[in-house]
Design a protein around this nucleic acid. Sequence first.
DNA 1: TACCAGGAGAGCG
DNA 2: CGCTCTCATGGT
Length: 288
Amino acid sequence: MFQVQNYDLAATLGCGQAFRWDWIDGGWEGIVGSRWIRLQQGQDNLSVEISPKTNATQDLGWLRDYLQIDVDFEFMISTFPNDEPMRQSVAACRGLRLLKQEPWECLASFILSSTKQIVQIRQIIAQLCETFGEPLPIPKGRKPAFSFPTAERIAACTEAELRACKMGFRAPYLLGSAQKVVNGEIHLQKLHELPLEQARAELITLPGVGRKIADCVLLFGYGFPQAFPIDVWVLKALRQLYFPKRTVKLKRLVKFSETYFGPYSGCAQQYLFHYMRTKNKPAALSEK
DNA sequence: TACCAGGAGAGCG
DNA sequence: CGCTCTCATGGT
């Protein structure tokens, strides 16, 4: 059980930053590392069930860190620009947090995300884990759970094996990136120590990783608060909400995003993303 | 059915 | 540079 304030579990797990959480019987079930987890939103707490069972005194720091329980939420959103779009976005999903995900899983997931709807990304990743992940212990009666396959396991695949998981043209990208991780051409852990621009430059050397996907990994996997991924939704948000008069080019919007949204611009970006995706369909959240 | 999806990379002028 | 085209698949 975690005591929390302003924590919107549904927005956090269902907003498209992670792809392995399912809404089941009033709670969220997913995998963190090598453990099956069930989380349930309470009034001012999150209840936690873990498999294999852990006793109450066991250290859950790793899960607190993943869920970013201890961030100063009020301070963070107080740094957002005080404009109409941000007020609307925050009002729509107050309590959305950025997760701190495992870098390789985050990288691989977003390589698979390009020009795919979130539902499809989830399907691809589920099949990838079922096929190449390790089975994990689960509570009685639950459907089987699998770890996210390591870079080593992916690097040992053929392109055809990966394509069988329906990832299409992304297969050679995932394979190539896994190989570079395994043979040491990039050190994912080392990126934690680099400034944002250098870490981004490193990631972009990987096949299938451009500015957008690199920023997703930096934001969701490394916690760089100023990584600002601009996908089709955020592009639409920036154009529609901030520059409605004329069509501003992407390059210009990248510059705008680097200066306008403050020290936690990446988090602001996620509020804009969630707002754009849900404002015309309020109830669609739990399944998408 | 037609359109589009949390893009990247190659080819072109 | 900056623009266009292709890549694979399936949801809505």
